[in-house]
Design a protein around this nucleic acid. Structure first.
Lengths: 198, 198
DNA sequence: CCTACCGATCGGTAGG
DNA sequence: CCTACCGATCGGTAGG
């Protein structure tokens, strides 16, 4: 067993917060996971909330670092969208618990930390909004009645992945990403047949 | 103020569980919301978990009752899918907090109740899997590389709606549903242009 | 990193 | 429906 460090505590907290949620995870649970008593954790970390904030903030940075260069490249919008979806699913596959914490547990941060995190989440959503808008302008994508709703639909597909993804599943992350990109880019309807519109 | 009843307690619990989550909501919080002390709640209800179970189970029943007749009708699969999406978004719009509880708080049920709920959730997902499979068989939908992943993508779009929906938003539930149905059925790419496939 | 502990809060109950 | 309370558990700290 490697020595206990702030980083090992963070790993254990990531797993526990992701599995049970932040409020249901006690400092005694985290201590058990690394072989310390609850009180002893405080020589490595400052507070329970500091753990949560670091997990969420690190996860969002990892996400922005991966997707920003894709969203802002010169490739056509459909290529950028598929690549962004690939990057997203790879990140989720490599960090399922971290992603779940970043998506759902940030609500338990205190006001200042939460506002910071909400702004970063917004920046992530804006990357997809940008791809959509530019794709419509360039004629690659059809016009959207309400672009915000379409973006929310795409983000829903992606943000739901950590709820069902399993490393033991039959499909690789890139296969999953391509299936989801096919859905979002091409839709379900056969290409020869115009989809029923209102 | 109407008299306190089991039903009013259930309504207050639905709102609080949806906003703060089950573990972070205390019986004292629920008592405050209906004007009782925590202990006094127990002459109307049996336990905190019984409240959670009832909310989740009621929500799932409401969902299955609305979507089952649509999914099993004789309409073409694309029509059924659009109608199912409409029903889903209407339900979410009318019961945002209940939907959030049914989607996320069921994890805190004890084993027996949780297994019951997981089976009902599975039945809901199967309705969409059925529409997809039958649509592919009838030639309305293109074949899916991994149908389970495509279904998960659609469910993600729908299950994410309660995270961002607001009754004060500019779009009506049916407008939202049609935008999401356009996304899932037709995709983003302009119809004249075949989407880039692998 | 442990011992020993703090005040606060938890779900729930007895008795009226 | 309240008073008064139960044992358990919470995040965190003092002192070593």
């Amino acid at each position: 067993m490697p020595p206990v460090s702030a980083d090992r505590i963070l790993q254990a907290a990531t797993r526990l917060f992701g599995e049970r949620g932040y409020p249901s995870t006690s400092m005694r649970d985290i201590g058990d996971a690394v072989g310390l008593l609850a009180g002893s954790l405080y020589s490595h970390i400052s507070s329970k909330e500091a753990l949560l904030f670091k997990i969420v903030d690190t996860g969002l940075d990892r996400y922005l670092d991966a997707v920003t260069p894709i969203a802002t490249s010169d490739d056509p919008a459909d290529v950028r969208l598929r690549e962004a979806i690939r990057a997203h699913v790879r990140l989720v596959a490599d960090n399922v618990e971290e992603t779940l914490v970043a998506l759902h547990q940030w609500k338990f941060l205190s006001d200042d930390n939460r506002h910071w995190v909400v702004a970063k989440r917004k920046a992530g959503a804006d990357l997809f909004a940008r791809i959509l808008t530019e794709g419509i302008e360039s004629g690659v994508f059809r016009p959207a009645a309400h672009p915000d709703i379409t973006v929310a639909g795409i983000l829903g597909t992606l943000n739901w992945v950590p709820e069902w993804f399993s490393p033991q599943g039959p499909a690789t992350p890139d296969e999953i990403a391509d299936d989801l990109a096919d859905l979002v880019l091409g839709g379900l309807t056969v290409p020869s047949r115009a989809p029923k519109r209102r």
